[in-house]
């Protein structure tokens, strides 16, 4: 069963009904396979009715589930891979690139500051413009 903590009620309903449908297919197949003269005559019809009822209910339930799933995740599943691995890689990639670009920003801002100081020394008459440009790029740093 899928983890429940991050599923909406509609998703839980759909997952539960899909499991019921899978079970109904299984039950019908098992009855047919184990058919004997002593098998109750209504065993197959009742199994069929259960299966059809489950199948018919799926469209209505699935219409209430509108979560978007990245195509990468679908391809992962098609290849038999664990979507949790995708989530882990995605999470780690966000953190890695966040820190990488953060480091780049620090380097560029350091260069900007040093460059600005040199310009102000060489051209004191444009100091006010340099200060104005410096203030435009102020961003508060919160990366942990």
């Amino acid at each position: 069963m899928l983890p429940q903590d991050d599923m909406t009620d509609e998703m839980k309903s759909l997952a539960s009904r899909l499991e019921d449908t899978t079970q109904a297919f299984y039950d019908l197949a098992l009855i047919v396979y184990n058919l004997e003269d002593t098998t109750p005559s209504d065993a197959i019809p009742e199994s069929l009715d259960t299966l059809i009822r489950d199948l018919k209910s799926l469209p209505d339930i699935s219409r209430k589930v509108n979560n978007l799933i990245p195509q990468d995740v679908l391809e992962y599943i098609e290849q038999g891979r664990n979507p949790d691995v995708y989530a882990r890689q995605f999470s780690e990639l966000v953190q890695k690139d966040n820190q990488y670009v953060n480091g780049k920003l620090y380097a560029i801002e350091g260069f900007q500051k040093a460059f600005a100081e040199e310009i102000k020394q060489a051209y004191p008459e444009v100091s006010s413009v340099v200060d104005k440009i410096l203030n435009e790029g102020k961003v508060e740093s919160t990366v942990s």
């Binding site: 539960s16 009904r17 019921d20 299984y26 039950d27 197949a29 098992l30 009855i31 396979y33 184990n34 004997e36 098998t39 109750p40 209504d42 065993a43 009742e46 199994s47 009715d49 259960t50 009822r53």
Partner: peptide, 16 residues
């Protein structure tokens, strides 16, 4: 079926 032994099933009609 994933069963070690064959199982003869009776009525299995049920809802969720």
């Amino acid at each position: 079926f994933g069963l070690e032994d064959d199982v003869v099933m009776g009525n299995v009609s049920r809802d969720s």
